[in-house]
């Protein structure tokens, strides 16, 4: 259960980080909603990347 929780939190954190960055980006540059959309997509990718790394599916970049 701990492992599942860790993986899901890794994924959610990636999405949250992407969305947060996008929100900040939009607020600064007034590009709403595009920054949010693009960065949330990237955050989605980062979330998947996090999960793959945490589950040992890909080699961690820091060896």
């Amino acid at each position: 259960m701990g492992k599942a929780f860790r993986l899901s939190s890794e994924f959610i954190a990636g999405v949250i980080a992407g969305a947060g960055l996008g929100w900040g980006f939009d607020a600064l540059l007034g590009t709403r909603p595009w920054g949010m959309i693009v960065l949330m997509m990237l955050g989605f990718g980062a979330g998947i990347w996090n999960v793959m790394r945490a589950s040992g599916f890909v080699r961690p970049p820091n060896g």
Partner: peptide, 20 residues
Amino acid sequence: ILVPIEVISFISRPISLSVR
């Protein structure tokens, strides 16, 4: 593509650490 993802991944670390 990877660099933004890595950056977001890095930023997501404290979030996942604290949220978990």
